[in-house]
């Protein structure tokens, strides 16, 4: 007789990211994250805030599987990041678009090539690339600048190229580590508008920021880290002023 004990469900159907008791310490003995528990649903927009050194970037790196947790487990989409095989990591990462504070564009290539680059990497046929790239450049409002090299763009424009690059492979999740950190308020708000639009089309967005105004203006979920510990996690919240 089959003994069908129901498996413990690790993830609800509408969840895309689950962290169970995740801790991360670096070799140097620094405990960057301690016992972090987070569940994120598909289509959520989540801010992660906290002081410098509170572990925000470490959190992003864990989600990208650039790092593995010291203890605890991470599930993202259909992947168990603790068990994923090295050669499956690229395939996993194709579900995630990532944006950094310093843009990280290829300076020797123009806007079009920077975005097409992301498609080449996942081996999209050239004909398809020629269709997809202009479309996504239009989405971020850079259709007219496709031939320009990053060095001749403003910070806001460069970040939009980076977002286009993150977006072009149609990821289910966008991770942004202080995407407005190098931008003035006006450009910052434009980037936020863009990320919100992307989120409204169904992409889950997780954004690390220091920017109080942005967090307060957007009224989204806010997770606050302090010294590697979650001290608050609120729906539709503002910036946690305790930190």
């Amino acid at each position: 007789m089959a003994f069908n004990r129901p498996k413990k469900k690790l993830m609800e159907d509408d969840e895309v990211i689950v962290l169970n008791n995740v801790s991360k310490s670096y070799q140097a003995g620094v405990q960057a994250l301690s016992n972090v528990n987070i569940r994120i649903k598909k289509g959520e927009f989540v801010f992660v805030v906290g002081d410098s050194g509170s572990g925000k970037s470490t959190f992003i790196k864990l989600l990208l599987r650039e790092l593995v947790p010291t203890t605890g487990s991470i599930y993202i989409l259909d992947y168990n990041l603790n068990k994923i095989k090295h050669r499956k990591v690229p395939k996993f990462r194709r579900n995630i678009g990532v944006v950094f504070q310093d843009f990280r564009l290829l300076k020797d290539r123009n806007v079009y090539e920077n975005v097409a680059f992301a498609q080449r990497i996942i081996e999209v046929p050239s004909a398809q690339i020629r269709k997809n790239v202009p479309k996504v450049l239009a989405t971020v409002g850079l259709a007219g600048k496709y031939k320009v090299k990053p060095g001749r763009l403003s910070g806001g424009e460069q970040q939009r190229v980076a977002i286009a690059r993150a977006l072009v492979n149609k990821p289910s999740i966008i991770l942004a580590d202080e995407p407005t950190g190098n931008l003035d308020p006006k450009n910052s708000m434009e980037i936020m508008k863009l990320l919100e639009e992307i989120n409204e089309k169904g992409t889950t967005v997780i954004m690390v920021t220091h920017n109080k105004e942005i967090v307060n203006a957007m009224q989204k979920r806010v997770i606050t880290l302090n010294k590697g510990v979650i001290i608050s996690d609120v729906e539709k919240g503002g910036y946690n002023d305790e930190i």
């Binding site: 690229p90 990462r93 990532v98 290829l106 680059f117 990497i121």
Partner: peptide, 16 residues
């Protein structure tokens, strides 16, 4: 190095 790290974030295979 920089380009390689970006490639890896985007999901380039080792081979690529």
């Amino acid at each position: 190095k920089e380009e390689i790290s970006i490639m890896k974030y985007i999901g380039a295979t080792d081979y690529f």
